[in-house]
Amino acid sequence: MNTKVKLLLPAFALTMALFGNIAILGDPFDVGALIMGGVMCVLIGYAHIVVNRFFSHGDKFIVSIASILPVIGIAVIYRLDPATAIKQVLWFIIGISAYMALVIILPDLKRFASLKYVYLVLTLVFMGMATFIGKEIYGAKNWVDLGFVSFQPSEFGKIFFVFYLASSLKNYTDLKSLVEPGAVVVISLGFMIFQKDLGSAMIFSFISISMLYVATSRLKYLLGALGAGALGAVASWAIFSHIQKRVMIWRDPWPYASNESYQIVQGLYAISSGGLFGSGLYQGFPGYIPVNKSDYIFAVIVEELGVVFALGIMVLYFILFFRSIRAALSATSPFTTLLAVGFSVMIAMQVIVIIGGVYNMIPLTGITLPLVSYGGTSMLTVFFCLGIVQKISEEV
């Protein structure tokens, strides 16, 4: 049995196990769940054929993990709300299509290294958009509603931000060459703070620090950036009452369990009731968890599928990060190395921030779990990032 088939079989088995279980537990028997499972298998198989057959030099594991994680998310969303799951399947189709299109269509990525100021303009536009025309949801002003579509501009801003830093830092020579990218980082973080988007600010900070260290290899820059980030976090806490409240309920959620920390407490109850192996699909009480299809889907997974299953998801994210960093190490130019590092850290930090928030290990932020939570903007941008990493992994 060759490697391609070995990578496909676990994805097919998990897909049919999840959707088959949902179909059996439905009352009456849910044929729609089996159809959705079959559709997911076809999409996963097609993506594997395109990437592994026609672009055999690239990483074989990235596309596999990028297929398995959405299966888990869509299955859990289907258990919560079949209509929403259908929308998520459509976003999965768009996302995986974008992933394959990037691998097929994009020429050598090094050709895009000279477009620094294009990325600069797009970064500032998308980072600042919600500050001026955004609407506030769950305390953060990070959504823009154009009437026919609503989206988070910062999700697209992350992509251009990484491209800008990669094109700017690839020619690092001395401290003076860091002045411009440093200013862009400060402005971008300023937009996130004014939008009260603490989670995105944390992610942008770690992207910047990681790419800075990879580009310069200077420990003093790394320590200086970490120190500046810590001071910025303290200043943000002192200025904004919204951030003070988040820290307050993080430190001690129980006195506020019926109001400010209701979401945190319900998530912790769900996690504790699930135990090692979960209560089983349809046996939990996810309706008590606010925002259970997006921000808090991980708590639903732990409650009904168990801590062991949740640890498996975290292992998948770790492998995805490892393979992405491996692509960065094998890249043939500083620009593509920095791109792979930036996108890898972006996805990894998003996982750490939301899972840490659900477990109340860090202050809760409104971040989606990549490829698992409901959200079209997040699904599309993560697949775009992974498509770029997949393309970089083919460099020889």
Score class of each variant (00 low, 15 high):
S205E: 06
G278Y: 01
V345R: 07
G20I: 04
G275W: 06
S56F: 12
V396W: 08
N259W: 14
P153L: 05
L169N: 05
Y296D: 00
L212A: 03
L175N: 12
G38P: 09
T332N: 14
A331Q: 05
I347L: 10
L109A: 02
L311T: 10
P107Q: 09
W250M: 05
L25H: 15
Q263D: 07
A228L: 15
A230G: 13
P286E: 09
Q195T: 04
V186S: 14
Q88F: 10
F132D: 03
T15E: 10
I86G: 04
F54V: 05
L175I: 13
T365C: 10
L18W: 11
Y282R: 12
L90E: 11
L276A: 14
L219W: 09
F148D: 03
L219T: 11
Q350K: 09
F126D: 00
V89K: 07
A331H: 08
V389Y: 07
F335E: 03
F309P: 02
A13V: 15
G366C: 07
I301N: 01
T3A: 14
S279Q: 15
Q266D: 08
R218F: 03
G20L: 05
R79S: 10
K170H: 13
I68Y: 06
G278K: 05
L338F: 12
S188C: 14
A140S: 14
L316T: 04
N171W: 13
F383P: 00
A11M: 09
P70M: 02
L320V: 00
G287F: 14
F112R: 06
I133Q: 06
S261W: 05
V125I: 15
S258N: 15
V89R: 07
S64M: 11
T365K: 00
M202R: 00
S261H: 07
V214S: 08
G267M: 09
L281K: 09
L231R: 02
V118K: 02
F54E: 11
T368D: 00
N292I: 09
V247Q: 04
G306T: 09
V5R: 14
T332G: 12
I289S: 01
S67D: 08
M100S: 02
G356L: 12
R326L: 05
I24Y: 14
L198H: 00
V186C: 13
L320F: 01
F92L: 03
S324M: 04
V345S: 07
T131L: 15
G58K: 02
